[in-house]
Nucleic acid binder design. Sequence first.
DNA 1: ACATACAGACTGACCAGTCGGTCTCTTGCT
DNA 2: AGCAAGAGACCGACTGGTCAGTCTGTATGT
Lengths: 210, 210
Amino acid sequence: MPAKSTKQRITEAALKLFEEFGFHAVTVDKIVQESGTSKGGFYHNFKSKDELLYTIHESFISYIIDKAHQAHASWSTPAEKLYETVHSFVRMFEVYQAHVTVFYQESLYLSPVYFDSIKKKRDRYKDMMFSVVKEGKQQGEFRHELPVPITSMAIFGMINWTYKWYKAEGEYSIREIADIYADLIMQAVLTEEARNKKDYQRFFLGHKVM
Amino acid sequence: MPAKSTKQRITEAALKLFEEFGFHAVTVDKIVQESGTSKGGFYHNFKSKDELLYTIHESFISYIIDKAHQAHASWSTPAEKLYETVHSFVRMFEVYQAHVTVFYQESLYLSPVYFDSIKKKRDRYKDMMFSVVKEGKQQGEFRHELPVPITSMAIFGMINWTYKWYKAEGEYSIREIADIYADLIMQAVLTEEARNKKDYQRFFLGHKVM
DNA sequence: ACATACAGACTGACCAGTCGGTCTCTTGCT
DNA sequence: AGCAAGAGACCGACTGGTCAGTCTGTATGT
């Protein structure tokens, strides 16, 4: 295994520092110090502090879009797609919590060109969620009285907020949290008929008592 | 009606600027310019830029704790308390969206003393939500398989996230959004028995098609 | 000899906060 | 009523520190 490149070391150090203190409270000197390189090393690998922030955003949003595509491709019914999307999104926190934190906390500070590029991808991801919910309503699996955009944003909210409080060493594992969120969401959006479908019982915490 | 005080004008201008550009991207000079006063006027009314940020946090968290107390005092069953808390929280966005945005986006940048003071109140609010969910489980209204902390944080997430996307001029009114969120949450947490209780039908969108 | 990767002293812009000053009010005295 | 004197509100040029980004190197591989 090759040793970590300077670029990687910088990215990882920056990620942790941004997560803890916020983009503006972290100086390039601090990042340089923490990653064991120098001003020169930093600006050799990145055009600017902004570009570093952008690469962090970029790597995260690409990953998550990829996951959503997988969920779409691997399952056929809207209920299954939604369940899988929610579950895989939450599990993503295990590895990407710092990315998510920076993504939602600091995207405001991306310079315009970078911001537009990220926004496009973020919107694409949002649209995928909207599609699933829409499809679910059309096929009668999801309650027809729920409007697509609000329901979708509610789901996003529940999931995304996790970055604010989740601690790896906390009482609940990320998988447990994923199970609970998925249960809550499926319980909230499925029609009574779909909820009782045999194949869908696996969505619910069911008999497991926590 | 007395004209707005300089302090008020500063606070309002800062609120809008912080919401749009973020605390660090807004200079005191900009606030001063926007609120029609001067550096001197600013520092006459506030000890520091930090203190201004603190007063914004403080006014919001106090308001929201007060609302939660009202919901607790006015209703007797956990289901009613939860419904009311959720509903009033969401309606709060109508007036306080800028406060919420600053609160959740910039609290990291509060200086330690201010941060501690805000954190205490925020935790108190969190505990109130936890209590309602706990009580709901104990009284058998909420599903026993749902763990209190995760369920509570899921509810918070759904609601809080609204600040990221809600636009007053958007397709849905804040009241509609509140109705939908409350429906989703009640649908997700209530036991089947409680869900069928006659008095609780008002929680759901029911026959209304959107 | 040349390119790539990095080192670290330096610079210039920016910005929170200061400080001496002015301009109203209010209060108390005659 | 008239005036002096103090207080509170506000003004804006200035300062001192901070920090992103630059620039001149040096080392190592090809």
